[in-house]
């Protein structure tokens, strides 16, 4: 968060973005080089793969969070807090469960990913369109999302146990990715989806600016609200699927990134917000991983640390929002 302090002056958005980009690049360079020894080529390749995964996850989480927050007109709701990544994992477990039951266990994981992706997007639309349409009190909306997340998580574990009561841990390992065990076979697909999603979000940046004004203002300015919201929700679901497939659920990464971005970007314009969030996410993930790997904790703990810090930020925002 050091850059937030540096940037808190009245620097122009372009300068702020450049500075953040520089910090992100620095983090990447540090991650690739610090403590490298032994077989250089192999080491670089391994690290390169993981760096690629982290950048992909960072961008996907950043863009999906910014879009989702714009959609819900609120800085504390994020896709993961609303249970979307838990939904992805539930769909994946259910799909593996069903496919194996039908005798398609050996199906290509990439094909699986796509099947899963469609099921999840459908479910997300079916669940969240009515929820967002009901104009719930913010507290109830958040609580519903959190409990939905708990429900999906428990359902996934239950299914995994039903599926293979002896080796459910093995299945969990195969199905659930984590930061210490990324899925290289899905890296390309995840990158493609993230790139496509980011391009779509970027092209819609002016529409997003209008959506941020709220339903009435947006409709008044000629936005066909329902279809735009449905489309954006599908976009969010796609990005969440890509990120979760690679490294597993990260409940508070989005919130952590969004709250830092708020300070860094210094504007609500999506032309700045989107790239700023993506860069901040890279700094958080790559920088955090570098620090943990060579300092405290060890490399496997990034998800836990992000969970801890993000959770505390969530609580601080909750109380700050109340006081306002």
């Amino acid at each position: 968060m050091a850059e937030a302090a540096v940037l808190s002056g009245a620097a122009s958005p372009a300068r702020r973005l450049t500075l953040t980009a520089a910090v992100a690049l620095l983090a990447c360079a540090a991650y690739m080089t610090i403590g490298l020894r032994g077989d250089l080529a192999l080491g670089l390749e391994l690290r390169g793969l993981r760096l690629g995964a982290m950048i992909c996850v960072g961008v996907a989480v950043a863009v999906s969070t910014v879009v989702f927050q714009t959609l819900t007109a609120n800085r504390i709701v994020t896709p993961s807090i609303m249970g979307l990544d838990a939904l992805y994992i539930f769909c994946q477990t259910a799909l593996v469960f069903a496919l194996t039951g039908l005798g398609f266990a050996g199906i290509d994981p990439r094909l699986q990913f796509f099947g899963n992706f469609f099921v999840m997007t459908g479910l997300a639309l079916a669940l969240f369109l009515p929820l967002l349409g009901r104009r719930l009190d913010l507290g109830l909306l958040l609580l519903t999302g959190v409990v939905l997340g708990l429900l999906f998580r428990s359902l996934s574990v239950l299914l995994a146990r039903l599926f293979d009561p002896n080796d459910f841990a093995v299945l969990q390992g195969a199905v659930f990715a984590s930061f210490s065990r990324t899925r290289p076979d899905l890296l390309l697909i995840a990158w493609l989806i993230t790139a496509a999603g980011t391009v779509v979000a970027w092209r819609m940046r002016h529409v997003l600016d209008v959506v941020a004004l709220g339903e009435e203002a947006a409709v008044g300015l000629g936005v066909s609200w329902r279809s735009v919201v449905a489309g954006l929700l599908a976009l969010v679901a796609a990005l969440v699927a890509a990120a979760t497939a690679l490294v597993g659920p990260m409940a508070f990464l989005g919130l952590l990134v969004a709250s830092i971005t708020d300070r860094v970007a210094g504007t609500g314009r999506h032309a700045v917000l989107l790239p700023a969030a993506a860069l901040v996410a890279v700094v958080v993930l790559v920088g955090g991983q570098t620090v943990l790997q060579h300092g405290l904790g060890g490399e496997g703990t990034l998800a836990i640390v992000v969970e801890f810090i993000g959770g505390i930020i969530f609580l601080v925002m909750l109380f700050a929002g109340v006081r306002r």
Partner: peptide, 16 residues
């Protein structure tokens, strides 16, 4: 006046 904030706070606090 906002009864849903308490369980929300509690769940995330438990998570932390």
């Amino acid at each position: 006046t906002q009864p849903f904030l308490v369980p929300l706070f509690g769940i995330v606090y438990g998570g932390v």
